[in-house]
Design a protein around this nucleic acid. Structure first.
Lengths: 232, 232
DNA sequence: CTTCCTTTTTACATTTTATTAATTATATAA
DNA sequence: TTATATAATTAATAAAATGTAAAAAGGAAG
């Protein structure tokens, strides 16, 4: 999952950008000033920044000039200042692209992708291979593999998606209908039993004794969750 | 000295860009069609391309889609087509930036610098690894050759591109539609079977027993991957 | 224009997976 | 305990994905 930081004092812009980029499966973090942006950068791995210029506190140009001293990640300026001199300043100070408001969200998305494509293809960032581990279960999303105590097990696509959902949120209880909505992207009508069957199949493959699951547990009347419970 | 290729059928534009960028001490080469651009790329080391879209002969979009199959250098589209959909297409096909005519030469220069700065700081100027090895398969990207257990095999261009994609990311599963998007640079509509046929052809050439592949494996419902499985 | 090679399409067989329905088991509360 | 709701299990059927062969279409070279 790639993390994108959007920095703008206009909350509507931040939430709009969040919506558009989340739809493309980016993880979007918002903030409202240059200072905040620099703080977040220190604490968290960010793969791309979308930065306004005029903001209360530290402005975007200063913030980018600052972060360029240590950091190399792609920066796209997104701002109402449409003067060419502003663009030139932004790009010369270390920005990678410059988009003016009002902006076309699809164009912004395309520009984000273009920057990330280059950054990642040139090895500027290793995308952490998405591996989820709970107890003896290891799920590798890129390779679509799952192993239990070192032994590979073969899951069907649906089983894999359900397991990934639960493993991404260990301990969290998901009702059958919520699992259905998230995995099928569809409205869950009478899907209870369908889920129950898939859960059984997953248990048959993961658990020593499917009738007394160590990992994939049921919470009565609520749904299913996965836990690294270890001993039964 | 960095070499920049400007490709536009309008000679005035070419000479104007030459003047502006030469003043920044870039070495600027001009040409007037996509075909010419691809020819020059083969013969000469180019560090950045500025590309028009509408040109007689091969258009810019096609040319970039073509060169992206093998080449990684930054591309800035410079064109009169200012529709957002054109920008989005250009960026999605592998362009890095998009500037519309009439353009501010100082802004163009700033964008050229921004692209080169990133390209060079990330070391894109050196050619990436040229030889990929998995198990007994050796793929030489520069020579466009493949051998299995020391014996040369002849792949068609499409087969080669698919194999390279998989070998660049060993273990990672690629769905048919993703393979199609990445290799064809096109939207994958009903391409499932096309991919299946190419996969079969590759298997016929690489595998001892195509029906029980050692390397090019299918993950049911997910896609294909390549693995150095060794023993069957 | 013809020939040869590559790519795509078509059609069908085969394999694997998803869903449904019917049945049995289990937890909870009166 | 008993009724009731929820969950587990099983098997059968429908649906989907992949494998394969062969023909058609497309393109490049001579």
């Amino acid at each position: 999952m790639l993390n994108i930081l959007i920095c703008d004092d206009d909350r509507d812009i931040v939430s709009a950008v969040k919506i558009y980029l989340s739809a493309e499966r980016y993880n979007v973090i918002g903030c409202a000033s240059g200072n905040e942006a620099l703080d977040i950068l220190k604490k968290q791995e960010i793969h791309l920044i979308i930065m306004d210029i005029m903001m209360p506190g530290m402005d975007g140009i200063t913030a980018v000039a600052q972060l360029r001293k240590t950091d190399n990640i792609p920066v796209i300026f997104l701002t109402a200042k449409s003067e060419d001199t502003d663009k030139i300043l932004g790009l010369n100070i270390g920005g990678d692209d410059y988009v003016t408001k009002p902006f076309n969200p699809v164009e912004l998305t395309a520009r984000v992708k273009a920057q990330l494509r280059r950054y990642i293809s040139l090895g500027g960032a290793q995308i952490a291979e998405e591996v989820l581990t709970i107890g003896g279960i290891v799920l590798n999303d890129a390779a679509k593999t799952v192993s239990v105590d070192g032994e590979a097990v073969t899951l069907t696509p649906t089983e894999f998606d359900i397991l990934r959902l639960l493993m991404k949120n260990p301990g969290t209880v998901f009702s059958s209908s919520r699992i259905y909505s998230e995995v099928w992207n569809d409205s869950p009508l009478g899907a209870e039993n369908t889920i129950a069957v898939h859960i059984r199949h997953i248990r048959e493959k993961l658990e020593i004794n499917p009738a007394e699951p160590r990992y994939l547990k049921v919470v009565w009347g609520q749904g299913y969750k996965i836990e690294g419970g270890g001993c039964g």
